[in-house]
Design a protein around this nucleic acid. Sequence first.
DNA 1: AAACTAGTTGAACGTTCGTTCCACTAGTCG
DNA 2: CGACTAGTGGAACGAACGTTCAACTAGTTT
Lengths: 193, 193
Amino acid sequence: MADAGRVTPVDARRSRGVPADGRRARGDRRRRAILAATLRVIEREGVSGVSHRSVAREADVPVSSTAYYYATLDDLLIACLKWSASEMAVAFGSVSPTPSSVARFLADAVGPHRGRTLAEYELYLFAARRPELRPAARRWITLLSSVFGTMQPAAFLGFVAALDGLLIQGLIADFPPTAEQLEPVVSLLMPPR
Amino acid sequence: MADAGRVTPVDARRSRGVPADGRRARGDRRRRAILAATLRVIEREGVSGVSHRSVAREADVPVSSTAYYYATLDDLLIACLKWSASEMAVAFGSVSPTPSSVARFLADAVGPHRGRTLAEYELYLFAARRPELRPAARRWITLLSSVFGTMQPAAFLGFVAALDGLLIQGLIADFPPTAEQLEPVVSLLMPPR
DNA sequence: AAACTAGTTGAACGTTCGTTCCACTAGTCG
DNA sequence: CGACTAGTGGAACGAACGTTCAACTAGTTT
């Protein structure tokens, strides 16, 4: 009261950027661990494999912990989608706008990172049923528009759609396409300027 | 034995094309009703909403009936994917290879038939986890290649991918795109010959 | 030090689930 | 007609589930 501008201990620690290995910090860590475990479950078994119990097993925490941080399964899936979408956006942010770079990104997504890509698309469709999640699901589209904003509108829409299509079709191919196979397709869709 | 080439009554009925409203015919009808109910459940609640019981409720049959025709849930989903893929192929078969026709087909898919399209893509991803289902999931791609076979290979691959992408992005849009909005994009991807 | 509170945990509730079983009905076949 | 068999459906099994709860531990604040 008398000292409204006073710096409390926790404020001081925060302003110094010290994470303070206390309750809050450990809580945040566990919250993140639960999200990461959820994503692994989705990669392995799909969205339908997600339950408070399966996630708790994967994260090696008691069931009541997952319920403590994410009261309902919906809360958990929603948080997982938002987090994975932001991670995906970061991953694509480092791709340069050349056909070979894009082709390599796509080949990695349906090859080495197949499980992860599959999880992304399951969450994608999950978002189709939850209007409040759609902005998060569209995030990487908006990111693309900032990178390839110089293209004609119609060409850009077709290009972005084709990227999604190439990914999803790569997921149901017997042998995932290679960067070499993808590059001519990408080149055709992405005029040099 | 003495009469190996003899025509049995049931053979005769079958060769005459008479369905015989007997056990087999009613069984086939119920089997189809169960599949149709399954697809409705997927449209409404997604693949994760499918259970022997939810399908039985939807089809208004006892639980043991769904288990009788499709011993496991996997059997049911597999049959549903194959059936819906063949239906989808039929639907697309009547689309003429012009930009406006294709644009209208896409707009219908993400508009009036949104639920059905959503179901198709959920099954699509389901197939990504079951190698034996992939040929069925790819059926409409192969159908496209017979319609648009005159295109250059790379252009064709990009075109097909873009169709998938336009559909899936239409599903997470706040307002599904109209045929008028889609046509310029389709035109650009589909050269007149 | 004392009050407070974020986080932890195991147990428990009622529900839904996949699947099996068995007694039963009614077409089919010889 | 008599044997056979495809289909029906109610009941039941154990398992897994979402969620709640209350007792507890240990950082945090005053």
